[in-house]
């Protein structure tokens, strides 16, 4: 295990969540779940982050924003869609301005379903994302450069 998976810094973006999943994401940081045990820090800055955690689905207002945040993260990076809205669009799927799940805009590596997703499953999703992070790193090194990690590397829950 390299340092990479021991120090996942994440950025949490609320795409169009009802705040249910957001509260659960924040709950992970609380003393009860204490994700800092795994070295996880909520940085709030894409340029420092390794893991992009998104709650809520994509709509016309935020698709550019999600794209922008993703582009500003240095590779290797993984995306975790938290909650059913982020995975598929959820109950808002048919709304006139909703595009759907996060994977309509950027490649998603781990899907954490639930309405709202429970902290345990969020933590589990992020920890699973770490092995994907390692894979991407290996792939990056194989390609020789530090170019952008291209295709999404499967995985899911």
């Amino acid at each position: 295990m390299s340092s990479l998976s021991r120090s996942p810094w994440l950025i949490h973006y609320d795409a169009s969540s009802c705040n249910g999943c957001d509260i659960e994401v924040l709950a992970c940081l609380s003393p009860l779940y204490d994700v800092e045990r795994f070295g996880i820090i909520n940085t709030g800055n894409p340029k420092h982050a390794d893991v992009l955690v998104i709650t809520g689905g994509i709509n016309e207002q935020n698709r550019e924003v999600v794209r922008n945040i993703y582009d500003q993260m240095p590779s290797p990076k993984v995306v975790v869609a938290v909650g059913i809205c982020a995975c598929t669009g959820g109950v808002f799927r048919e709304c006139y301005n909703v595009v759907g799940g996060i994977d309509r805009v950027i490649p998603v590596d781990v899907y954490v379903p639930g309405c709202a997703a429970r902290p345990e499953s969020i933590i589990d999703g992020i920890v699973r994302a770490l092995s994907i992070l390692e894979e991407k790193k290996a792939e990056m090194e194989k390609q020789g450069g530090k170019g952008r990690a291209g295709s999404p590397v499967g995985g899911g829950q």
Partner: peptide, 17 residues
């Protein structure tokens, strides 16, 4: 976090793009 967490963090930063 583990005591050595800062070293992991910096180590990771050097692995990044």
């Amino acid at each position: 976090p583990p005591l050595l967490q800062p070293f992991y963090d910096v180590g990771k930063l050097f692995e990044k793009e």
